[in-house]
Each structure stands twice: as structure tokens, then as C-alpha cells.
């Protein structure tokens, strides 16, 4: 394992975020405050408790998942797309580094950034609502798994994208709607029967609910099902990235 190479990519990508530190910190803090003002205070006050949890606390795992999923995809996609766009990808391709090591560097940095931001959201949430985390270790494990999986997915999008429009296409028209419709801000029990069935077709619904379980010890689906969906998506992403690197698709030639 070429640790120096991995460290180099990781540090380089982390430095990119540090250059825009105010934007990286302020944006999630401001948007979290807005969510809590709009959903927690304005709308939440009209909603009774869900499974004994106040609505304000109920949406915290959803907010964290919304953030970790979208930022993981965006950071990782941008991280690999930018060197492709500028041409500086030549360095990575001509370096003595395996595809696996390249992935660890880029995906690791994207996941780290998105996980740190989700913790920032958690910290901001404490200013608006009181809550306990029932299974903190599981919360951390699920957060890392989600961050890594969606960073890997973002990495694939970044490799596939041949222009800026394509880079934004999947996050905008697939990820964001699925996260919003995956129970980030509501419980399926609040939906009519037909829409409950539709929601259960959304894989992200299982991931968000698994994460909510780690907070409150209760969710719409069993934790095992959540982990199964997350692991399946992770393996699928690993398989796609392996094929891309083995065939050189969109990279070599």
C-alpha cells in the first residue's frame, strides 16, 4: 500500500475545502438554522410528537443524512472531475498508485468533509432542540458508511461526467429528490397507504431510517434492513469503480 500517495491526495483534497473554509462552515450552519426555523418552529409546532419524539428532534437525523449524502456526492464528484477538466489528472494516472489507492484518497477526503459537516449540523441542532443519541457507536458507523458509500457514488459520477451539466445532473435530479422523499422530514405513518408503498421503493428511505434508529432506538424499518441496503449500495459502487479503473473507461484513451 502506497501510504504517501494516498496521504498526498487526501491532504490535497482537504486543502481544497480549507481554502473555502467560511463557505464550508457557514453554508451548512445557515441552512440548518433555516430548516429548524421553518420545519422545527413554524411547521413543527403544529405537528404532534412522532413515536414520542418531538418533531424538531425527529428531523435531526434526516437533516444530517440529507447533508452527508448530498455533500459526499458533490465533493467526490467535483474532486475527481476538476483534475479531469483541467487535465491535471495526468499526474494521478502516471503515478505509481493503484486504482484502489486513488479511490481511498479521493473518497476518504470527500467522506471526511461531509461527515465533519454533518457533525456541524448536529452541533447547530443542539441550539434549537434537546435530544439524546441512543446508539452513538451505531450512529457513527452508519454515518461513516453513508459518507463513504455516497462519496464513492459521487466519484463514479465525477468519472462519468464529461461536462459540468452532467456533473450536476444526477445529484440534482436523483439524489436530492430521493433524499427529500426518503423520510428525512416525516415518518411514513404520516402518509396515505399508496404513498407509504411508493416511499418503501426508495432505497434511501431505509438508510435514513436506520440512522434515525441510532438516535431514538425506533424507526419505520428494522436496522438490519437498513444495513443491508447500505451494504448493497456500497458493494455496487465498488464494483462499478473497479470496472472503470480496469477498463480505463473515460480515463485512459
Amino acid at each position: 500500500m502506497n501510504f504517501n500517495s494516498i496521504k498526498s491526495i487526501y491532504k490535497f483534497e482537504m486543502a481544497r475545502a480549507l481554502r473555502t473554509i467560511m463557505q464550508s462552515i457557514l453554508a451548512p450552519v445557515v441552512s440548518t438554522c433555516l430548516y429548524f426555523i421553518v420545519f422545527g418552529a413554524a411547521i413543527g409546532s403544529k405537528i404532534s410528537e412522532l413515536d414520542g419524539i418531538s418533531y424538531g428532534a425527529f428531523i435531526i437525523p434526516g437533516l444530517m443524512m440529507l447533508s452527508v449524502m448530498t455533500t459526499s456526492v458533490n465533493y467526490a464528484a467535483f474532486g475527481i472531475y476538476l483534475p479531469k477538466y483541467t487535465g491535471s489528472i495526468y499526474e494521478v494516472m502516471s503515478a505509481p498508485i493503484s486504482a484502489f489507492e486513488v479511490i481511498i484518497g479521493y473518497v476518504g477526503a470527500a467522506a471526511t468533509k461531509s461527515i465533519l459537516i454533518s457533525f456541524l449540523i448536529l452541533l447547530t441542532a443542539t441550539a434549537f432542540v434537546s435530544f439524546d443519541i441512543r446508539h452513538p457507536i451505531w450512529m457513527l458507523v452508519l454515518l461513516i458508511m453513508t459518507g463513504s458509500t455516497f462519496s464513492l457514488f459521487g466519484f463514479i459520477i465525477g468519472l462519468w461526467a464529461s461536462n459540468w451539466e452532467r456533473l450536476q445532473l444526477i445529484p440534482l435530479i436523483v439524489i436530492t429528490p430521493l433524499v427529500f422523499l426518503g423520510g428525512s422530514f416525516y415518518s411514513t405513518s404520516m402518509l396515505p397507504g399508496f404513498w407509504q408503498t411508493i416511499t418503501k421503493l426508495n432505497p434511501i428511505f431505509y438508510i435514513i431510517n436506520g440512522f434515525r434508529w441510532s438516535f431514538f432506538g425506533t424507526s419505520d424499518v428494522p436496522i438490519g434492513v437498513s444495513i443491508f441496503f447500505m451494504a448493497a449500495f456500497l458493494l455496487l459502487c465498488i464494483a462499478v469503480v473497479s470496472i472503470i479503473f480496469r477498463t480505463g473507461y473515460k480515463i485512459r484513451n
Partner: peptide, 20 residues
């Protein structure tokens, strides 16, 4: 093929590390 907002020394250090 250079990233415009990197400093000279950082981009050179990056390459050294990348090559192990």
C-alpha cells in the same frame, strides 16, 4: 494542466507525495 488556485510549492509537494 495545473489547478489554478494552488500555490507553486503546494502543487510541487503534492506531486512528490503522489509519487510515493
Amino acid at each position: 494542466p495545473l489547478e489554478n488556485y494552488e500555490s507553486v510549492i503546494e502543487t510541487v509537494k503534492f506531486t512528490r507525495g503522489l509519487f510515493g
